[in-house]
Amino acid sequence: MTFYSTAQQIARGSREQRGSHLIPILLGGAITAGAMALIAYLLWPTWEADGSSAPARLPVSVGATIFNVPTAAIRMKIQRHSGPQERVDLSFAYPSLEASDSPKHVSADTVEETIQPIDRIFLSIAAHHDSLAPDARVRTIYPRYLEQASTPGQDGLTRRAFRDGTPYGHEDLFFANTPDLTARCSRDSTTPGMCLSERRIDGADLTFRFPRSWLAQWRDVANAMDRLTAQMHGTGG
């Protein structure tokens, strides 16, 4: 009888000991599970799987210079990420300057028709790697190839033609002061002429491209380029 009572006490003690050891294990498991749930909540993506709620703007670094670019304006999907990039290519509707990368659809019935007018301003932001600055090129390189005579244009815009047989043959240089505008433009031929206007910001060069025909309202074009620059690198929103 004594032996049986002793056995019961030993069994009861073993159960109590196992229970006392089990409580810390259960508490530790609950704490671990709670921590994992919190981490999963904090790291869980907040956008939809189809990307419809992707950020409207992306901070990118080009030439160690930060730009806040509209996601929808980026023309190449491979460039649609934040962080350092060598180059970013953008497209904006004109004159609204809304971000848009959707190309116009051309059907088999319309592909042979007259070329549709371009309604966008294109912008490339690229690291310059200490190459000659755009304004220095205008002062030191272009004058070697320009005709001596200049032609006053409408509303304060001046044109100087590049000499034939030079690297810039069949192009013209346009410039104005208020607002500032410098653009090198090809002449109309089988395709409409296009203009290129460059500016440097820290470690990056900005290259704007637009139809030459827009120079009829050159002040609007110059202001549009200034606005885009300020919106992506400056105080503009």
Rank of each mutant, 00 (worst) to 15 (best):
A33P: 01
T140K: 10
S189L: 11
R187Q: 15
G203Q: 06
L206Y: 00
Q231M: 10
A54I: 00
A176E: 04
G169T: 04
P24A: 05
N223Y: 04
S20T: 13
L181V: 07
S53H: 00
P45R: 03
P143T: 02
S186A: 13
P24S: 06
A7W: 08
L157M: 07
G13A: 14
Y145F: 15
R209S: 15
S52L: 03
E171W: 00
L26K: 09
D202I: 09
P55S: 13
Y168K: 03
V111W: 10
R160G: 03
G13P: 04
K104L: 14
S131V: 11
Q231S: 12
H21P: 00
Y142F: 15
V69Y: 00
G83F: 06
D164W: 02
A204K: 06
A216D: 05
S52A: 15
S14Y: 09
G169K: 06
K77Y: 09
H128W: 10
R144I: 09
I78T: 15
T46S: 14
S197T: 07
A33N: 02
D109F: 14
L26M: 12
T182M: 06
A35D: 00
R212T: 15
A136C: 01
A183I: 05
A93Y: 04
I121N: 00
A127S: 13
K77R: 14
T182Y: 06
S53E: 00
V221C: 05
A37G: 10
R80P: 06
S61I: 12
L123T: 06
P192H: 03
G156D: 04
D50S: 01
G153V: 06
L42N: 11
S5N: 11
D101Q: 08
A93T: 14
T229V: 09
